[in-house]
């Protein structure tokens, strides 16, 4: 009995000692995964079935999310958009730090769902209803992306996707350009996004800014021979804008074509 009491005392002493240690580890983990906060895990407990919660908390959260995503694919095939949205929300709740769930969830809502409702038959005289529904799905996708960006602010992908959304779904080209620029500030952003900023500015009608942007881009490297990066396209746009904006010959980057 004496040793057992000693063991109990040791356990409690260790327990008291380990608490600050655990809190520090939790804080460090928080830095790694900004998205996971305590309220989140309460929320999680409320929203999922008991068994799934256990699995999710028991270290099999990744696989649970994957399985839900597979069923989301099924919902998508059956065009059940409400279910697609619900499943996407659960996936990002389970694994908020997985870019893919935010990105593809938003793509399903803002592109697939909104396109589908635009083509869906509606009662006579209620064409405005279509636009309303489509808009609702686009907004849902945008909300998903914006929340994702708050959780994973350091990756370019969601900014790029948000730029695409503003461009393709909302036709807000200035906003798109802003998003692309934000994406470019983050490491790992594909190089072609550089050109998207210029295209977006042109589409927005901000030609002077677009011209300045193209020139800055051109000046950022000295070697323009790499075919892969399509410097030819950039050159073409600069030439067109120089002509259109009537840039004085001395300030031009390229001599006007004869």
């Amino acid at each position: 009995m004496r040793y057992r009491l000693l063991a109990l005392a040791l356990l409690v002493a260790w327990g008291a000692g380990k608490l600050p240690w655990e809190r520090r580890l939790a804080a460090e983990r928080q830095v790694v995964m900004v998205g996971e906060t305590l309220p989140m895990s309460y929320q999680l407990r409320d929203r999922l079935g008991q068994g799934l919660t256990m699995a999710a908390l028991g270290g099999f959260r990744g696989l649970a999310a994957d399985c839900l995503w597979i069923s989301l694919t099924g919902a998508w095939e059956e065009q059940e958009w409400e279910r697609v949205q619900a499943l996407a929300e659960v996936c990002v709740l389970l694994q908020p730090r997985v870019v893919f769930f935010w990105e593809m969830g938003a793509w399903n809502l803002a592109w697939n769902a909104s396109e589908a409702v635009t083509r869906a038959p509606v009662p006579m005289g209620r064409i405005d209803r279509r636009r309303h529904d489509a808009m609702r799905w686009i907004e849902a996708g945008r909300s998903l992306l914006e929340r994702g960006i708050r959780v994973i602010p350091e990756r370019p992908t969601l900014y790029q996707k948000l730029g695409d959304l503003h461009w393709q779904r909302l036709e807000d080209y200035s906003k798109a350009a802003e998003c692309y620029e934000e994406a470019l500030k983050r490491p790992g952003c594909p190089a072609y996004v550089e050109r998207f900023v210029g295209f977006a500015l042109e589409k927005a009608g901000r030609r002077r800014e677009a011209y300045d942007y193209w020139r800055r881009l051109w000046g950022s490297v000295s070697e323009h021979g790499v075919d892969q990066h399509r410097w030819g396209v950039v050159e073409e746009h600069i030439r067109d804008l120089e002509a259109e904006l009537d840039v004085p010959a001395g300030e031009r980057l390229f001599a006007p074509a004869r």
Binding site: A26, V32, G59, Q95, R97, V99
Partner: peptide, 16 residues
Amino acid sequence: DFQTFNLIDEIIAGNA
């Protein structure tokens, strides 16, 4: 505290 090991999730999610 087994949640301490949740770093595994982060690594698989591709986080640094």
